[in-house]
Computed example of a mutant assay.
Amino acid sequence: MSRNPNPASFFHAPKTAAELTTLMLMSPFVIGTRLTQFSMAAASPQAKDRDEVSRMLSEKMQAAGESIVAMNLATIEAMTSLAMATVFGSGRSSNHGDTILSAGLKPYSQRVRANRKRLAQ
């Protein structure tokens, strides 16, 4: 018995793909710009250089916290949705994994977009 799987079922993650594409395209620019700034300021760092390091670290911590909260809320929403679909017998098909993962990636991609815009000036 041969099965003909739907190729779209293997990769049906448009939200996650958008967030990952943002990270993939913009992160190298942000990392390269910051490393260049840090290497130029290594001999005599100014206040703005120290502020950039501080900002970089605090943004990462904030993004991690927001990511954890967003993923937990998306998981609770997915579990509630599945429970309600089971109770009421509606066979609603949804890609909850995509929703949960994209919720976790969104804080990072928002910061990368903002940093790319700010550092490009």
Rank of each mutant, 00 (worst) to 15 (best):
residue 104 G to C: 06
residue 97 G to L: 10
residue 96 H to L: 10
residue 81 S to C: 05
residue 93 S to A: 13
residue 83 A to E: 07
residue 100 I to T: 08
residue 81 S to N: 06
residue 102 S to C: 05
residue 88 F to K: 13
residue 103 A to D: 03
residue 105 L to T: 05
residue 78 A to I: 07
residue 86 T to G: 14
residue 92 R to T: 11
residue 96 H to K: 05
residue 83 A to F: 04
residue 105 L to V: 07
residue 83 A to V: 08
residue 105 L to F: 01
residue 93 S to V: 14
residue 82 L to D: 12
residue 84 M to W: 02
residue 89 G to S: 08
residue 105 L to R: 03
residue 76 I to T: 11
residue 104 G to K: 01
residue 99 T to A: 15
residue 99 T to K: 12
residue 75 T to S: 15
residue 75 T to F: 01
residue 73 L to M: 07
residue 82 L to A: 15
residue 79 M to F: 06
residue 86 T to F: 00
residue 79 M to H: 08
residue 95 N to A: 14
residue 88 F to N: 14
residue 74 A to Q: 01
residue 99 T to H: 04
residue 101 L to Q: 04
residue 95 N to P: 03
residue 78 A to P: 01
residue 74 A to V: 05
residue 78 A to R: 06
residue 103 A to E: 02
residue 97 G to M: 06
residue 78 A to S: 15
residue 103 A to N: 03
residue 97 G to C: 07
residue 101 L to R: 06
residue 104 G to Q: 02
residue 92 R to Q: 11
residue 90 S to L: 10
residue 95 N to S: 12
residue 75 T to K: 10
residue 77 E to Q: 08
residue 103 A to I: 03
residue 91 G to M: 05
residue 84 M to C: 06
residue 101 L to S: 08
residue 85 A to P: 00
residue 83 A to W: 02
residue 97 G to S: 12
residue 100 I to N: 05
residue 99 T to E: 08
residue 98 D to K: 06
residue 101 L to K: 06
residue 85 A to I: 03
residue 87 V to S: 13
residue 90 S to E: 13
residue 76 I to Y: 01
residue 83 A to Y: 04
residue 94 S to T: 13
residue 100 I to Y: 02
residue 97 G to H: 01
residue 89 G to E: 04
residue 80 T to K: 12
residue 100 I to P: 01
residue 105 L to N: 03
residue 83 A to L: 11
residue 101 L to E: 02
residue 93 S to C: 04
residue 87 V to Y: 03
residue 98 D to R: 06
residue 93 S to G: 11
residue 92 R to G: 11
residue 101 L to N: 04
residue 75 T to Q: 14
residue 101 L to V: 15
residue 80 T to I: 09
residue 80 T to S: 13
residue 88 F to T: 15
residue 104 G to F: 01
residue 95 N to D: 12
residue 78 A to Y: 00
residue 79 M to T: 14
residue 82 L to S: 14
residue 75 T to M: 10
residue 74 A to P: 00
residue 92 R to L: 10
residue 95 N to V: 07
residue 75 T to V: 04
residue 99 T to P: 00
residue 75 T to H: 05
residue 78 A to C: 08
residue 73 L to N: 14
residue 92 R to H: 10
residue 104 G to V: 04
residue 88 F to D: 13
residue 95 N to H: 04
residue 90 S to N: 15
residue 92 R to I: 11
residue 99 T to I: 14
residue 80 T to M: 08
residue 95 N to C: 09
residue 73 L to A: 15
residue 101 L to C: 11
residue 89 G to N: 09
residue 95 N to Q: 07
residue 102 S to L: 03
residue 98 D to F: 00
residue 90 S to M: 11
